[in-house]
């Protein structure tokens, strides 16, 4: 039997070095048994795949059949207007939203959000196609969807790359609500060709600034933060 000269523990006769300190085994009286049975197998296990594909197939079939059936009904039976476009668009929207979750989980989250942006924009365009009034798609819908997507991307980035707590997450959420409110009002006023200034969104902005100020103070004052944690722990 061999012992580790560093740790003093007895080693298995197949060990080439001590598993604790990596000191090589050097015992002239008992060479390492290279062909001996190892105490543990060398075969590496793999996790069984989760059957996500089945759910994805089911979802695709349900949405596709709904879209095709509604399209056929619109063409052959209820021919008034292109109402089936709303349902087909909605099916496409749901598919884009849910399929990355069910099929390809390694897809970048940012790319997924951009796909979602495209799907929502496409659905708005379908509505615009039916009601092409005042270029509302390009002047109102696209800026609002883009702003919302930008905030979602910022939120996702912050959550993934910074160490966040419930309080700091809440801080970010209120900051984004304030930004979204202001952005919404500006886009609406631009669309209505009104003078650009803020009214109702100013109220939202002030409320959010107060809440964020409070959260910032709590975050910076350790004692206060601990007190809030103590009193509000779940």
């Amino acid at each position: 039997m061999s012992y580790c000269v560093h740790c003093g523990v007895e080693l298995d006769r197949t060990e080439v070095s001590c598993p604790l300190c990596n000191t090589p085994v050097n015992n002239p009286n008992q060479p390492i048994d290279i062909n001996g049975k190892l105490p543990y197998p060398t075969l590496k296990g793999q996790v069984d795949p989760v059957k996500r594909g089945d759910s994805a197939i089911l979802l695709t079939v349900v949405l596709l059949s709904t879209a095709v059936a509604c399209g056929a009904l619109n063409l052959l039976v209820f021919k008034q207007g292109l109402w089936s476009l709303y349902i087909i668009g909605l099916c496409a929207l749901l598919w884009v939203f849910f399929i990355p979750v069910l099929i390809y989980s390694r897809l970048s989250i940012y790319l997924t959000i951009l796909f979602d942006w495209a799907a929502v924009a496409l659905y708005c365009w379908i509505i615009y196609y039916q009601f092409p009034v005042n270029h509302w798609f390009l002047r109102l819908a696209v800026p609002i969807i883009s702003l919302l997507t930008a905030f979602v991307l910022i939120f996702t980035f912050a959550i993934r790359y910074f160490k966040t707590s419930i309080l700091s997450t809440a801080f970010l959420v209120f900051a984004e609500i304030a930004g979204l409110g202001v952005g919404l009002e500006i886009f609406i006023r631009m669309f209505l060709n009104q003078k650009i200034h803020i009214t109702w969104s100013a109220v939202v902005l002030v409320c959010c600034i107060i809440i964020d100020g409070m959260l910032f103070t709590i975050l910076k004052r350790t004692r206060l933060r601990e007190e809030v944690r103590r009193r509000m722990h779940i």
């Binding site: 740790c7 523990v9 007895e10 060990e15 598993p19 105490p39």
Partner: peptide, 11 residues
């Protein structure tokens, strides 16, 4: 206390 060590560690 005498101890004998076995491990699956890849050194």
């Amino acid at each position: 206390i005498p101890v004998k060590i076995e491990s699956n560690r890849n050194m």
